[in-house]
């Protein structure tokens, strides 16, 4: 996984709440069996509207998505994270993320930053008045900075360390394979197994 320490880019204001993962990447796109090539599917239905924010030339190159509350609700599809990353987004800012989407994003190196709704609105106002406004999402300092404003955000030490080192969870867990072996010896006999199949 690519390390994430700090990222600076322009923002895209998505003034909608409850953006579910079916909007981020519609189901018809989920048939692909790769992790790449989802950028065209990102917000596919909404992008048919010429007024949609991603279709505005001034926001076409943004890398920090600034969205309304409850971003990423619904389906657990990690394809939503891949679509945002494939398109070029490195970070998403919202006042609230759905749990599974947040987990998926932080596994895959897309930084999801929780700020208060008033901070989100202040960023919307800033980037709408000047789309060239640069936003820095600084994971090391746990800060979002733009123009003359600086806002702190919370992220637990472990996740921050993992993202900054670009470590994947499987490798980390396999360091504790002995603990897994030990646990398995304590599992009760009545726990079901799928094999051999009984029908």
């Amino acid at each position: 996984m690519e390390k994430f320490i700090s990222h600076t880019g322009t923002g895209v204001p998505l003034r909608r709440s409850n953006v579910d993962t079916d909007q981020i990447i519609p189901a018809v796109w989920l048939k692909k069996i790769t992790r790449t090539g989802f950028e065209e599917g990102l917000f596919a239905a909404w992008r048919q509207d010429p007024e949609f924010v991603l279709n505005k030339p001034e926001f076409a190159k943004g890398t920090v998505l600034v969205a309304g509350a409850d971003f990423g609700t619904g389906s657990s599809r990690e394809h939503a994270v891949w679509a945002l990353q494939n398109y070029g987004f490195r970070a998403v800012i919202s006042s609230r993320f759905a749990d599974i989407f947040r987990g998926n994003s932080l596994k895959g190196g897309l930084l999801t930053v929780v700020l208060s709704q008033s901070d989100v609105e202040a960023i919307w106002a800033a980037i709408e008045s000047d789309p060239k406004t640069e936003i820095t999402v600084d994971l090391e300092a746990r800060q979002v900075r733009y123009a003359t404003t600086s806002v702190g955000f919370e992220i637990d030490d472990y996740t921050r360390w993992r993202l900054m080192e670009g470590l994947d969870d499987i490798g980390l867990t396999l360091r504790h394979v002995d603990a897994i072996d030990d646990f398995e010896k304590t599992r009760p006999a009545y726990k079901p197994a799928t094999l051999p199949a009984k029908v």
Binding site: S76, E78, I100, G103, N104, K107, D156, I170, L172, T173
Partner: peptide, 21 residues
């Protein structure tokens, strides 16, 4: 019982565990 993304699917296949808060 809970849903998860594909990275976690791979994690469970490889380790039969999940790191969870």
């Amino acid at each position: 019982a809970f849903g998860m993304g594909t990275s976690e699917v791979e994690h469970v296949m490889a380790t039969q565990t999940l790191p969870l808060k």
